[in-house]
């Protein structure tokens, strides 16, 4: 498959973002994202607005999700993921109800405020399972001291293995195998992911190491890998199409797997 062939396929980017500027949705940046998606043949872009502070308050994550609502009004290309801080369990569950039940967002986005296997996540994970929406968790196996210090509670593959046992009814998405960090280590750990686990991994991130997607698919199977860019667009498409996959494998990664868990 060539990049131009993507325009004839259904392509879902399951991990992307809109951002705030001066306390409001950065509409110019959102418009630029839409243009880039159109240029590259991406039909659906799932967006969230995660907050990277230590412990965002309910008011802060509600404001962030309001900006996602505004983005959803801009274009049908966007689908929303609801960001919450599970440290505020009751408020998070209420926010999921507001965003997903009432405003038709299609997933939950978590950042590194808590690890994916932290018991504090129980109310959010159980409610996501009840609603039948996936939980996309920021992830990396970081090896450099600066980022390890900056993200002390970032999740990696071992945490997802635990979470798959703790929350067997919740669909888990491990973010960006190419998001920086030791992706080979992650894949070696994920060899032990049970076939029964409701587990997926997305391919986004800036890392385009030779063989990264081929190895990811070889480890987990094409039916557990999701196309995504996390805003790093040419890398997402380029590394997927370089992986030497069959048309059927590509179709699964580009859209069928996402359609199975999103809609």
């Amino acid at each position: 498959m060539k990049p131009t062939d993507l325009h004839a396929c259904t392509v879902i980017d399951i991990h992307n973002h809109v951002w705030a500027k001066d306390g409001e949705l950065d509409r110019d940046r959102a418009m630029s994202l839409l243009k880039a998606a159109d240029c590259l043949g991406i039909d659906t872009v799932c967006v969230s607005l995660p907050l990277m502070t230590e412990s965002p308050t309910p008011e802060e994550f509600r404001q962030a999700n309001d900006m996602v609502f505004e983005a959803l009004e801009m274009s049908d290309t966007f689908r929303g993921f609801c960001f919450v801080n599970p440290g505020y369990a009751e408020e998070s569950v209420a926010e999921l109800e507001r965003c997903i039940v009432r405003h038709r967002m299609v997933g939950v986005k978590l950042y590194h405020q808590y690890r994916i296997c932290d018991p504090a996540l129980r109310p959010v994970m159980d409610y996501a399972a009840e609603l039948g929406v996936p939980v996309l968790m920021h992830a990396a196996k970081l090896r450099d001291s600066a980022n390890v210090a900056r993200q002390p509670r970032v999740s990696h593959a071992e945490h997802f293995l635990k979470a798959a046992h703790m929350f067997p009814n919740t669909t888990l998405i491990q973010a960006h195998i190419g998001g920086g960090g030791d992706w080979e280590w992650n894949l070696r750990v994920l060899e032990a992911m049970p076939a029964s686990a409701k587990y997926f991994i997305d391919i986004s991130g800036s890392v385009v190491d030779a063989g990264i997607i081929r190895k990811t698919v070889a480890t987990l199977g094409a039916d557990r890998v999701l196309f995504a860019t996390d805003g790093i667009m040419e890398e997402g498409i380029g590394k997927l199409l370089e992986a030497g996959l069959s048309e059927e494998q590509l179709q699964h990664i580009l859209s069928r797997n996402a359609e199975r868990i999103l809609f």
């Binding site: 990049p3 880039a36 385009v208 190491d209 030779a210 890398e235 380029g238 590394k239």
Partner: peptide, 17 residues
């Protein structure tokens, strides 16, 4: 491109777009 460390197509797409 950064080849052979990196896949080449991402850079080609950057040039094209």
């Amino acid at each position: 491109s950064g080849a052979p460390f990196k896949e080449i197509l991402p850079s080609l797409l950057k040039l094209d777009t």
